[in-house]
């Protein structure tokens, strides 16, 4: 039970990071972006490549930050991957989504995102192969917190949780303390009014993709650190992340954070009552429950 809660919180930390970007995009660009989870894969693989590059260029950085399995090189790779993934999200928007948007076919954006998801996922598979990859070949030993009941925690897990919380807090500060943050919230609430108050809409959309892509990269890397990196990870993560945004209420950043943890916990606690094979269905059950009990989510507002 306690072990399930710990694992759930850990899962929640990367789901939340993924859901934040998704909820922002869904709110500001008004479409369910089915390719958002592919940004997680993109980030995970980008970090893999950057890690190898950094290690090759500066072997000194391959030292581990004990007790973590994380090396300095991978730490640097995480930052590089955030930038690269954010830029990729901007480029994808330029090449595809913006064109569809400017044709006025807002509903078609969903289709376009599904198509993009297929393209990105399978190109990753073609480049990196279908077999799983790991950031560190070493087996990370868990610290035993308690023998009865048996509770295991890996140092990496603690790092992932803390890093996720730090990122979320940083985003909170940006949104609640800076005029840049106000402009993001303003565009989400009323794009036309934001514009006549001097907000550059196109630039804000770029910022949203950068933030969403950056956080997605971290989420993907943390998923890779906790599990493994595979080309189809986006396919497995897309529903949990969507569930997190719906549980929290589409458009609410704080809702996405809470929703991510709820989905993570629910998935792990479900293991107590359901066979493991059913775990992929849990996010859908949560979506159903929220739609029945509180259709606009925990923090959401009704909006047409």
């Amino acid at each position: 039970m306690i072990q399930n809660v710990i694992d759930g919180v850990l899962t929640g930390s990367y789901l939340s990071l993924g859901a934040i970007g998704l909820t922002l995009v869904m709110h500001i660009l008004r479409f369910a972006n089915f390719s958002h989870a592919e940004l997680l894969s993109l980030g995970a693989y980008a970090a893999l490549v950057c890690d190898a590059l950094v290690t090759a260029l500066a072997p000194v950085l391959a030292i581990k930050l004990a007790p973590l399995s994380l090396t300095w090189a991978l730490g640097l790779a995480i930052v590089l991957s955030m930038v690269l993934t954010g830029l990729s999200a901007v480029v994808i928007d330029r090449l595809v989504f913006r064109r569809v948007r400017e044709r006025g076919a807002e509903l078609s954006m969903v289709f376009a995102s599904f198509g993009m998801a297929l393209v990105i996922r399978n190109i990753i598979g073609l480049i990196f192969g279908l077999s799983p990859k790991l950031y560190s070949q070493e087996i990370a030993f868990a610290t035993v917190l308690s023998f009865d009941p048996l509770i295991l925690v890996k140092p990496d897990q603690v790092f992932v949780l803390l890093a996720a919380l730090v990122l979320m807090f940083a985003l909170h500060l940006v949104l609640s303390r800076t005029t840049f943050g106000y402009s993001l919230r303003a565009v989400a609430e009323n794009p036309a009014l934001a514009q006549i108050n001097g907000v550059n809409l196109a630039r804000t959309i770029v910022a949203v993709w950068l933030i969403g892509g950056g956080l997605a990269a971290v989420a993907g890397i943390f998923y890779g650190m906790s599990h493994q990196i595979i080309p189809v990870m986006g396919r497995d993560l897309v529903l949990p992340i969507f569930a997190a945004t719906i549980v929290g209420g589409i458009g609410s950043v704080y809702g996405a954070v809470l929703g991510g943890f709820i989905v993570g916990l629910a998935g792990n606690l479900a293991l107590l009552v359901l066979p493991a094979g059913y775990t992929p269905s849990v996010p859908f059950l949560l979506i159903l429950a929220v739609l029945i009990l509180r259709p606009h989510g925990l923090f959401g507002e009704a909006r047409a």
């Binding site: 106000y182 919230r185 303003a186 514009q195 006549i196 108050n197 001097g198 550059n200």
Partner: peptide
């Protein structure tokens, strides 16, 4: 663009939905 017009000195107060309800007064 509207934001450029604002910078050039045109202000517009719409009839409804003319403030950001989710932001505080100071943030507006």
């Amino acid at each position: 663009r509207p934001d450029q017009l604002t910078a050039r000195g045109i202000a517009y107060v719409p009839q409804t939905d003319n403030i950001f309800r989710g932001l505080t007064i100071r943030q507006n």
